[in-house]
Design a protein around this nucleic acid. Structure first.
Lengths: 332, 332
DNA sequence: TCGCAACTGGCAATCGATTGCCAGGATCTG
DNA sequence: CAGATCCTGGCAATCGATTGCCAGTTGCGA
């Protein structure tokens, strides 16, 4: 260790610690730094952790990294954490509550200094278990119905509002909302927004809400097949997310319905390549990367004991109008 | 600690250690286990690490998580590592060599038990620095020109071969290979395969190779614009990856060239949604998830001191024929 | 000149689990 | 029945950095 090279045992620690300004004379500090440099010395993080009770890592729990909305969030988190000198322990729950519980427990056992959780269903045993744990926790993108933690996500309400205004502005009146299962927080947040905006824009007008089996292409395909096969089909579909919208695309192809001439489709999330599908998908874009950064910043604030207000941060979303929406045909 | 609850100090450690079979009497073990259970005791990983000199984490270095080929790889790695009780410290270099170097150094300082690196350019200071470090290291998907480490990736050669045979089988003869910059290992591996297969299939026939500025849509668009604007344009383009292929799509749209009627396009990687673009892209699919799992398994083998042979594992790729390729038009 | 304060650096305890060595008691062997 | 062996559990050192406390020096003011 640096002690040998220099002269002393634990003086080196103080010399190398920037939080102790004039604690050690400049002379001595210089010697220590020099010795450390020559030996390529880096204090052992394990030993340090043991003494200081800080592990230097935070756990990041995601439901499924293959979901295209997550990588940008994780990147935002990861970059922000490294900048603060914290490592990022990644855990993927594969959307399974039991795995979520197990992984959160594992992360706690590893003495993570904080947790960023993107995986929570509306009921989450794992999140509940954290409530009085004292572990700094931030939820991101998804959240349980009831929880005391800070949350960062996109402003879904504004997104749905913009999407619906867009469709109504194009003359659409028979609009179906095709969303996911009711046990996901995303479904609830977006659906509530849909209902509110609907009442404002088209009070009293009937609307259709269909719950798919999941936020997937297959579920979207299946649900839209029923919806579009019957008489009196809608002139526009607002999808709960882009996956469902892609499922709708497949159904349209199957049934030989032209988008956007005969029907308009709007998605949500603006996943990568949604400008490359056919037709290019009109959808709500969410600043996922910034959501990740903000979540990490919030966690750092909490960790430093800084006050965090407000506790919910909804980052601005924006409707990107592409080729999948058009004025309602006059025939209707 | 469990000691208090039970009766002894460090006997608990042995009782809880499954690697010491009959070391402690069944009676005592039972008591310890019971006490541990009641207290929800989990040995402190930090203290354990300090003593055993094993940190329980491996570093995973990726160039850019937003590149769609990476998430499945990372998932495969992450799952396999957790199964083995290892954590997964994620580090994203943003494709910057200086960050790669800094992050690898940081991961070393944190005493990672192993490193899985997906980021290496053809020259990598970071990888070079690991050579005599004794740290178990596995490279994945990309690799420097010269290195002593095990490597796991897709069988690009077979992929390029299948793609080229497909095009030639459709009657194409004027084929351009549109690949990335020469300083990336992916470029080199795929390009060498292209040249070899070409010599076998169409010996002596002239072919065109164009290097784009990167494996991106923009670079693909730009390079293909030059290529397709002139006279005597190719009847088929084999792209170095799907991004470039999408760039070609944009150029085709700009120039009003119909794919696949007038020109065929083949990609490489089979990124998500490549079946949803227009026309659906014929491309080479790589078992990315399995690549990740295999890389992690290899790392575990090395860590356990098991022999790893062969040191290069190329997982089978497959050409998925979709709508972007068609027989060469008779006009040519 | 004396005394007190400021400044430096060392000592030793501490974080919590692991592990080599040892000892007491039980069991076995000749 | 004596001595050897086995089984079990405790003692204490160890991993390496951090930090409260203390002591020796130096400097300054009274």
């Amino acid at each position: 260790m640096a002690e040998l090279a220099g002269v002393h045992p634990a003086t080196a620690s103080r010399a190398l610690n920037p939080d102790l300004p004039g604690r050690i004379s400049e002379e001595t500090t210089r010697k220590v730094v020099e010795a450390a440099r020559r030996l390529g010395y880096r204090p052992d993080p394990t030993a340090r952790s043991l003494r200081t009770r800080r592990s230097g890592v935070v756990g990041v729990v995601v439901p499924d990294l293959l979901n295209p909305v997550l990588p940008p969030i994780v990147r935002g988190i990861e970059e922000t954490l490294w900048e603060a000198g914290l490592g990022c322990l990644l855990a993927d729950t594969d959307n399974r509550p039991d795995r979520e519980t197990a992984l959160v427990e594992e992360l706690r056992a590893r003495r993570c200094e904080g947790l960023i959780i993107a995986t929570a269903a509306r009921q989450s045993e794992a999140v509940a278990s954290l409530i009085d744990s004292g572990i700094p926790t931030v939820l991101v993108t998804r959240e349980p119905d009831d929880h005391p933690f800070p949350f960062v996500g996109g402003d879904d309400e504004a997104g749905v509002e913009a999407a619906l205004e867009h469709l109504v502005g194009l003359g659409h009146r028979r609009i179906a909302y095709l969303t996911g299962p009711t046990d996901l927080s995303t479904t609830v947040r977006r659906l509530m927004a849909f209902r509110q905006v609907w009442e404002r824009l088209l009070p009293g007008v009937r609307h259709t809400v269909v719950h798919t089996e999941g936020f997937t292409v297959a579920a979207g395909r299946k649900a839209s097949l029923d919806l579009l096969s019957g008489e009196d089909r809608p002139t526009a579909i607002l999808a709960g997310n882009d996956m469902i919208a892609l499922g709708v695309y497949e159904t349209l192809q199957t049934l030989g319905i032209d988008c956007p001439r005969e029907i308009s489709v709007v998605g949500h999330n603006d996943m990568p390549f949604m400008d490359q599908v056919h037709p290019p998908l009109t959808t709500v874009t969410i600043p996922q990367y910034d959501v990740g950064r903000e979540a990490a910043r919030l966690l750092l604030d909490i960790r430093e004991g800084r006050e965090v207000t407000p506790t919910r941060r909804l980052l601005p979303t924006r409707l990107v109008v592409r080729g999948s929406t058009a004025p309602a045909s006059v025939a209707h």
